[in-house]
Design a binder for these strands. Structure first.
Length: 321
DNA sequence: AAGAAGGAGGTTA
DNA sequence: TAACCTCCTTCTT
């Protein structure tokens, strides 16, 4: 791994960059064990002992979907972490039917977890596509789309500036580059390659399972009708902010609900939110001064207002979700 | 210093 | 024409 602290090929890192340290520490604990990679770089499910604690560590208030997935946390002592797999029953030795059943249950649980993780990764990609107005398949990206994706990835995962190194490259050009090319391009080239790899895997998966994809898109009610029905219509700032708010496990570090029922939200990182908006609108000079001016234009229109008790960087949707 | 408020003119789809 | 974008001044935190 060329970049200290970054675990490439990990969807857990991809979706949860603020858990890098924890995950890195965890990886240190198990660095002698190298799981086989599957789709999205997930370890294969035949490797349960090390896999589960990872989700437990991700299960924070910022990752409610992980909490949903694992349900009641299993006490660490009960997890078979780093415990050798039970050895196969020797001929003539009676297999304990109870442990066999537990094994099957565990396997089913793990399959469900993997399905949900993959689903969440696909949703995250779907969200990014809609926010950026780009195709989900990197092969379809124009040079401009590549720049948008690079800028977005840089800012979302706090990577150093990478976009200047891939000027004039289309998505197809980017996909034709080997991991080594990425590594040579930048200190964080391997991280970027891992991100791209996940997008490509997702696109390949969508191609294989178009029905599942359309089903998940239909189930996702977090997008306003105006975006789903008119995908090429320009997104409004208020819609953009709302979509960031509806994806707290991705964007809570820059914008979060203070009171979702009342529609009150706080911009935690004004520069970051402005940058994301600037990427979306192809306005490199966007800053919070300009973004806030646009928000204030909503006062007269009755879309956003300041809450009754005015606070810095806190606004309120007039019509809450 | 950073943010809030709002006027005014410009740009884009 | 709407929805910003940009720049600006003045005031507040």
């Amino acid at each position: 791994m060329g970049s200290p602290g970054y675990a490439a090929h990990s969807p857990l890192y991809i979706s949860h960059p603020h858990h890098i340290d924890t995950r890195a520490a965890w990886l240190d604990e198990v660095e002698d064990v190298k799981p086989p990679r599957s789709l999205f770089g997930l370890p294969e499910l035949s490797w349960p002992g090390v896999y589960l604690p990872c989700y437990e560590r991700l299960a924070t208030e910022e990752n409610p979907w992980v909490l949903r997935m694992i349900g009641t946390p299993t006490p660490p002592a009960a997890l078979p972490s780093r415990t050798p797999e039970p050895s196969p029953a020797k001929p003539g030795q009676a297999q304990d039917p109870r442990s066999e059943m537990e094994g099957q249950v565990e396997e089913r649980c793990l399959e469900q977890v993997q399905t949900m993780v993959v689903g969440e990764v696909l949703k995250d990609i779907d969200t990014a596509c809609k926010l950026l107005n780009i195709a989900s398949d990197p092969l379809d990206w124009s040079c401009g789309d590549v720049q948008k994706w690079l800028l977005w990835t840089e800012h979302l995962y706090k990577l150093p500036q990478l976009s200047t190194m891939f000027q004039q490259l289309s998505g197809r050009d980017l996909c034709s580059m080997a991991e080594a090319d990425f590594k040579h391009s930048s200190q964080f080239g391997d991280v970027l390659y891992a991100h791209l790899d996940i997008w490509r895997s997702a696109a390949a998966m969508k191609e294989r399972c178009p029905t599942e994809d359309s089903k998940s898109a239909a189930d996702d009610d977090s997008w306003p009708d105006v975006i789903c029905k008119y995908p090429n219509q320009p997104i409004h700032l208020w819609q953009f902010l709302r979509e960031l708010l509806l994806k707290p496990h991705n964007y809570s570090r820059c914008i979060r609900w203070v009171n979702k029922e009342k529609g009150i939200f706080k911009i935690e990182d004004s520069a970051h939110v402005a940058r994301l908006w600037g990427i979306r609108k192809n306005r490199p000079a966007m800053n919070y001064d300009k973004l806030s001016r646009s928000i204030r234009q909503y006062y007269k229109k009755g879309i956003i207002r300041k809450p009754d008790v005015s606070r810095r960087l806190v606004y309120q949707f007039v019509n809450p979700v």
